Simulated scan of single mutants.
Amino acid sequence: MGVEIIEFDREHAVARMPVEGNTQPIGLLHGGAYCVLGESLGSMHANYLAGEGRVAVGVDINATHTGSATSGWVTGTCRVIHAGRTLTVHEIVVTDDNGRRCSTLRITNLIRDAK
C-alpha cells in the first residue's frame, strides 16, 4: 500500500499513501485504500494509548468518501475523539495533495489485557 508515517505523538498521527497502485479500474483511489490508511492510523494510535501489557483491537470502522484522489498522495490525519480505559475512538481525515478532504473515517478500538 506504500503507507509512510509522517508524525506520531500522544495527540495525533499522520501518514501518507500514494494513489498510484491503490486505484480502482477507473483510476480513482479505491475506497478500501482509504480504509486501510484510516484503520492503520487509528489502530496504531489506540495501541500506543493502551499502554504496557494492554492491546487495542478494532470493533468498528466507518468511512464516508466525499472526494476522489486520482494522482499524487493522500494524507491521513488521525485525532483522538475519546481515550477511555476500555475504548478509544479516533477520527481520521484524509486529504489529497491540494488539501481537499476525500474521506472521513471513525474507528473504535476495544482496549483489553494482552494475553
Score class of each variant (00 low, 15 high):
His90Cys: 09
Asp96Gln: 09
Asp96Tyr: 08
Ser103Cys: 15
Asn98Asp: 15
Asn109Gln: 14
Arg100Asn: 11
Asp96Leu: 06
Val80Leu: 07
Asp97Tyr: 10
Leu110Trp: 11
Ala83Glu: 10
Ile92Thr: 09
His90Pro: 00
Lys115Trp: 07
Val93Ile: 12
Arg112Gly: 13
Val94Ala: 05
Arg79Phe: 00
Val89Ser: 13
Arg101Lys: 14
Asn109Val: 02
His90Phe: 08
Arg79Cys: 03
Asp96Thr: 09
Asp113Arg: 14
Asn98Phe: 06
Cys102Ser: 07
Ile81Ser: 01
Asn98Ala: 14
Val93Gln: 08
Thr88Asp: 02
Asn109Ile: 01
His90Asp: 02
Arg100Gly: 05
Arg100Cys: 01
Ala83Gln: 05
Thr104Trp: 07
Val80Phe: 00
Lys115Ile: 03
Ala83Asn: 12
Ile92Trp: 04
Asp96Arg: 08
Cys102Ile: 01
His82Cys: 03
Leu87Phe: 08
Asn109Ala: 10
Arg112Lys: 15
Thr86Arg: 15
Ile81Arg: 12
Ser103Phe: 00
Ile81Ala: 09
Val89Ala: 12
Val94Gly: 03
Arg100Met: 09
Val94Leu: 11
Leu87Val: 06
Leu105Ala: 09
Gly99Ile: 08
Ala114Leu: 11
Thr86Glu: 02
Val80Pro: 00
Arg85Ala: 13
Gly84Pro: 04
Arg85Met: 05
Val93Phe: 01
Leu87Ala: 00
Gly99Trp: 09
Leu87Lys: 14
Leu110Asp: 01
Leu110Gln: 12
Val80Gln: 01
Thr104Tyr: 05
Arg79Asn: 06
Asp113Gly: 14
Val89Gln: 10
Ala114Ile: 02
Gly84His: 07
Ser103Pro: 03
Leu87Thr: 12
Asp113Met: 12
Ile92Gln: 03
Arg85Ser: 12
Ile81His: 00
Lys115Gln: 11
Gly99Thr: 08
Ala83Trp: 00
Ala83Ser: 14
Ile111Asp: 04
Lys115Asp: 11
Leu105Ser: 07
His82Met: 01
Val80Thr: 14
Ser103Arg: 02
Thr88Gln: 02
Gly84Cys: 05
Thr104Arg: 13
Ile92Phe: 04
Gly99Ala: 10
Arg79Ala: 04
Gly99Asn: 06
Gly84Lys: 09
His90Tyr: 06
Ile81Leu: 15
Thr88Asn: 10
Thr104Gly: 01
Leu87Ile: 08
Ala83Asp: 12
Arg106Gly: 06
Thr88Trp: 02
Arg106Gln: 14
Val89Trp: 04
Ile92Gly: 03
Ile81Phe: 02
Cys102Leu: 06
His90Trp: 06
Thr86Trp: 00
Arg106Glu: 04
Thr88Pro: 02
Ile81Glu: 07
His90Glu: 05
Arg79Gln: 09
His90Lys: 09
Val94Met: 09
Arg85Asp: 07
Arg106Asp: 00
Thr104Met: 11
Arg112Leu: 11
Val89Leu: 12
